[in-house]
Design a protein around this nucleic acid. Structure first.
Length: 344
DNA sequence: GATCCGTGGGG
DNA sequence: TCCCCAAGGAT
């Protein structure tokens, strides 16, 4: 069996030499621990999101709202617009709810235990453990997709995920001690991101290669074994671009629950196998083509229709640039499409 | 436990 | 082109 203590010391030594330089990490030798606000913000942004995608958002959020109290005081629409393009918009709603809970119920100071962190909106098992470990040096079992993969390979776990999750978490827990818990968590995730990668792992560079049952099996990339996932259905729909004489576009706030919840959007039909193409208002509607978009659990062909109208009704009217910046990607694509046939 | 919830890059 | 998937959480 892999030697837990040996792997720990080898990986921590590797981390001391190979830690990635990331926007939310204190530079090497920096005084004091990392700000909990920055750790929390980065962890939320990194949920199911790649580092390159999250980085510019982290920079703009921290520049605009330097503390959790600043963020708590922001308006909902501002924060949602600033999150536009990052995806999983429930994160932005929960981010604001969490900031307000910290500002209002905790005096602007993040709680420093895993249990108290877990009670905050948008903070689940992973994020609570990560903030506790990285910001507060608590011995927490930080398990994300990277850690699951590393454990599955180290121990050559044949049980497929997701059923194997509890077992992988148990294995990860074998490594958690009071010694450098924050560094340990980040070392494991850095290893997973740069060496023990999903495809073509770089086992020749791995400090734990000598202890890895997956490598010994001859096919480490086979782990973690995965269950086949369901097919992604396809839907169709219409998006309606109304432009007033000043070039303003009609947008509506989407309900908090459901797809793209809380975000601004174009008026649309239902999205289904055979959507109802009736536009929201009468007018001289023209077809501007279609855009394709892929969501997590369905793909969409969105046909774009445009009309010149007078501003009014129950809409927010924004200029083209402002609208595009505030919209989720699927609607930004639709707006781009509407602009092409020289309607504007 | 199963489902819903985005996006963009890489193989 | 298509498929995979990335520092998950809520219901």
């Amino acid at each position: 069996m892999p030697d837990v203590s040996l792997i720990r010391s080898e990986l921590l030594a590797w981390y001391d030499r190979h830690a990635r330089s990331l926007a939310w990490r204190a530079p090497p030798g920096a005084e004091g621990r990392t700000e909990p606000y920055r750790v929390w913000l980065s962890e939320v942004m990194l949920q199911q999101t790649t580092t390159p995608h999250a980085t510019p958002y982290f920079q703009s959020f921290t520049a605009r709202w330097p503390t959790v109290s600043d963020l708590a005081a922001a308006e909902d629409g501002e924060v949602m617009a600033a999150w536009a393009g990052l995806g999983y918009y429930a994160r932005a709603r929960n981010l604001l709810a969490c900031a307000r809970a910290v500002a209002g119920e905790h005096g602007g100071v993040f709680p420093d235990t895993e249990a108290d962190l877990l009670a905050l909106p948008g903070v689940g098992a992973y994020t609570a453990a990560a903030v506790a470990a990285i910001a507060f040096d608590r011995a927490a079992n930080v398990v994300d997709g990277n850690v699951e993969r590393v454990m599955a390979r180290l121990f050559a776990v044949e049980t497929p995920v997701p059923p194997a999750r509890p077992e992988l978490k148990r294995l990860a827990g074998l490594f958690v001690t009071d010694e450098r818990p924050g560094d340990w968590a980040q070392a494991l995730m850095d290893l997973g991101a740069t060496v023990c990668r999903p495809k073509s792992p770089l086992c020749g560079q791995c400090p734990a290669a000598g202890q890895c049952l997956g490598l010994a099996s001859g096919a480490p990339e086979r782990f973690p074994v995965k269950l086949k996932k369901a097919e992604r259905p396809h839907r169709r729909g219409f998006a309606f671009v109304m432009i007033d004489p000043d070039g303003q576009v009609a947008l509506e706030r989407r309900p908090d629950k459901g797809l793209l919840g809380g975000m601004l959007g174009l008026p649309t039909s239902d999205w289904s196998a055979s959507p109802d193409a009736t536009p929201p208002v009468d007018g001289d509607w023209r077809e501007a083509g279609a855009v394709e978009h892929v969501f997590t659990h369905f793909s969409l062909t969105l046909t774009v229709r445009t009309a010149r109208v007078k501003a009014g009704g129950d809409y927010q009217w924004l200029g083209l640039e402002a609208a595009r910046a505030a919209l989720p990607t699927v609607f930004a694509k639709a707006l781009d499409r509407a602009g092409e046939p020289a309607l504007i």
